[in-house]
């Protein structure tokens, strides 16, 4: 006689993390209301709209939390930006009915870059990101608004962003969501399909894609990152079905970019050193 054998259902270990988008949207709307309105007495948000899914999701969340009339979508094209980035960003402002404007950053960026003709793509990209940060903060000051960040957890963990630029807004609703979770949230929120379907890109050069730069798809990077953060070693991940080369790409980027997730390193000289001994929460 053979007895039926019952074993636990095992989810696929190598899948990107799941998300309940409705629950997440509710939580993040409450987060935005608490952090902006209740915490800082600021009712308006400024979001830089790149034409990508991260900034679109952020704009949708802000519109739900604060009302569309209190959200300002700012498009900041450079002369080499893809025209489709502008039109895709326009899809967001049109769908949401939020305030929108376009501020061309070419003159500002080239005002500096003209003196650095040999700057490579990485340096140029960092300059553009920092000019955009400048615009977002100044527009926020003009409007009595707060800049809201659009960096997702994947790019934060991989260090795939410009330090003190993309990460500089004081409030970020999607920074603990992996890219694949942002896509699911975008579908739930009703972000226009072209923004969800297109390949993510920093839009610095023609045909540039994030996944091409990183050497791994977001779906795989998210799965590997999630397991690394849960404490698995490379060998354990490979034994459980991950590709070693991909695990190593992710681990290397993660381990070489911890500094990007911190404030500047300050020499400690006293027993009142800020953030070492003198500790106050951000909302105190």
């Amino acid at each position: 006689m053979k007895l039926p054998v019952i074993e636990p259902h095992r989810g696929d270990f190598t899948q990107a993390p799941a998300i309940n988008p409705e629950l997440t949207a509710q939580w993040l709307e409450a987060f935005l209301r608490d952090e902006l309105v209740a915490g800082r007495s600021i009712e308006r948000a400024v979001v830089g709209l790149s034409g990508g899914v991260d900034s679109a999701v952020t704009a949708y969340l802000c519109a739900r939390a604060l009302g569309p009339k209190n959200v300002y979508g700012v498009r900041m094209p450079y002369k080499q930006s893809s025209p489709s980035s502008l039109t895709d960003a326009y899809l967001v402002t049109e769908a949401l009915g939020i305030n929108e404007c376009t501020i061309e950053i070419t003159a500002a960026a080239d005002g500096y870059l003209q003196f650095e003709p040999d700057a490579d793509a990485r340096r140029r990209g960092n300059v553009l990101a920092r000019v955009r940060m400048l615009v977002l903060f100044d527009q926020s000051a003009k409007l009595g608004a707060l800049p809201v960040g659009t960096g997702n957890k994947t790019e934060r963990l991989l260090g795939y962003f410009t330090w003190h630029a993309d990460d500089s807004p004081p409030v970020n609703p999607i920074g603990d969501l992996y890219k694949s979770q942002v896509w699911k949230l975008a579908e739930y929120l009703g972000v226009p399909k072209p923004l969800i379907d297109k390949a993510p890109s920093a839009d610095l050069e023609a045909n540039q894609t994030d996944e091409g730069d990183l050497g791994i798809t977001y779906a795989k990077a998210d799965a590997v990152l999630a397991r690394i953060l849960e404490g698995y070693t490379n060998d354990q991940l490979v034994a459980r079905g991950f590709d070693r080369a991909e695990v190593e790409i992710v681990r290397k980027r993660l381990d070489s970019t911890h500094w990007k997730r911190h404030l500047p390193t300050t020499a400690m000289l006293s027993n009142t050193a800020i953030n070492e001994f003198y500790l106050r929460p951000v909302d105190f």
């Binding site: 993390p17 799941a18 998300i19 309940n20 409705e22 629950l23 997440t24 939580w27 979770q181």
Partner: peptide, 11 residues
């Protein structure tokens, strides 16, 4: 402090 968005209808 709440966490865990990958399950059912609540954290």
């Amino acid at each position: 402090p709440g966490r865990g968005i990958d399950d059912g209808g609540e954290l």
